[in-house]
Design a binder for these strands. Sequence first.
RNA 1: GGAGAGGUGGCUGAGUGGUCGAAAGCGCGGGUUUGCUAAACCCGUGACCGGGUAACUGGUCCGCAGGUUCGAAUCCUGUCCUCUCCGCCA
Length: 427
Amino acid sequence: MLDRKFIVENADLVRQNCERRGSRADVGRFVELAGRWRDKQLEVDQLNQRANEVSKSIGKAKDAEEREARKNEGRRLREQTTAAQAELDAVAAEMDALQRTIPNMSHPLAPLGADDQANLEIRQGKTPPPKFDFKPLDHVELGEKLGLMDFEGGAKVAGHGFYFLKNDAVLLELALQRYAIDLLIAEGFMPTITPDLARNEILQGTGYIPRGPETQIYSIADSDLSLVATAEITLGGLLSDTILEAEQLPIKVCGISHCYRTEAGAGGRAARGLYRVHQFTKVEMFAFTLPEASDAMLDYFCELEGKLFDGLGIAYRVVDTATGDLGGPAYRKFDLEAWMPGRGASGEYGEVTSTSNCTDYQARRLGIRFRHKGEKGTTFVHTLNGTAIAISRAIIAILENYQQADGSVLVPPALQGLMGKKRIEGK
RNA sequence: GGAGAGGUGGCUGAGUGGUCGAAAGCGCGGGUUUGCUAAACCCGUGACCGGGUAACUGGUCCGCAGGUUCGAAUCCUGUCCUCUCCGCCA
């Protein structure tokens, strides 16, 4: 969330930013509440001060009668304090709820626009889209022929949107995980395998809403746990309520987790096969940085994503996400869209990774700060997240781009060693 | 699942209902000593929310929420979490 004082002092900017992002957050109401909150806080402080003075004077009272009189005064003051505090709490609660709905500020260079139509292509990968002298199949058809996925089985066991990966798809998933992790270790990330569940408090800290009609999150009944939608949640939560030393930064971690998404309201969209599913595996990058270093880290994450897909030999483009298409915590976001020959009528780009600079928006709620050695005071770190590889979508891209006329699929050279074969031929 | 222990400042860890925002150590900052480094010694050093240009100053915070009391880190209740042992299990 944004800083309370920042919102009050920059109400017009914040309001304008909300409009650009298509947020209906009531900034005016927030400012009004903040004023009331301040007055109330002052009142509570003063009442407390007087009550404290009275309490301290009781020991010094010269006789029992005076002591009783002061006790009564103390009692009365405490009652007033309790009442004032209750009012303050009510204001604070409403403020907090409002504050959560206000999205992060936007990078000045982020393209303006209401939705993904306004996203701006900024570059393309090294590999050109493949040319086929036959009609390419989509990944569902390929998976069917090669015995790689079982959507019916998944539906029977867990419902629509679930699937079994089978045979070489399993090796492909494992190879992709290893491929991504190897590169990230070489880049100085600490590799982790994270929990697939997290406390709701951590979800909220990262900007996810665990419950409610539009939630994307599966929650666990009779607990305050949810299935994570991304390892961004667990990796960000890893350092929650921590004060770091400036010299420890940046901290780069990556994590493998399963990701669970209800995809509420997503029906009808281009969601065939593995593209939009309730569960998939993802290797995620995360960084905690000094504020002045986060822009560069975002570029770095974006470069790494490109490097991973260049390495796989898959065509892609990178888009700078428009303000209206940014999630709440993101200050700026780059998506990498891979060429998927089987998508749409004659191939389309489909999002495969995404990287965001969340500045201090997540850190403020998660309580992740740093201090400079020897200096007083602390500052919130900046957090960034980026997909290294979302396995299910990477599988789509690989199958569709590497398919051959004979129905087999070549394994990208970078994965051949990890997979132990050069070609997926089915049974 | 059963039994027990515990949650205190950046970290470790003391703490009698008022003199406790809290001992001590570590860490950190400054200083003295020293040929340099190290060591030793001395002084200082919590976070958050307000007011003030500033010096300074008011309030809150000892997991969280309630309760008792004029007054709670300290007593009571509930709750969450962590750790140890046992059981079960991949």
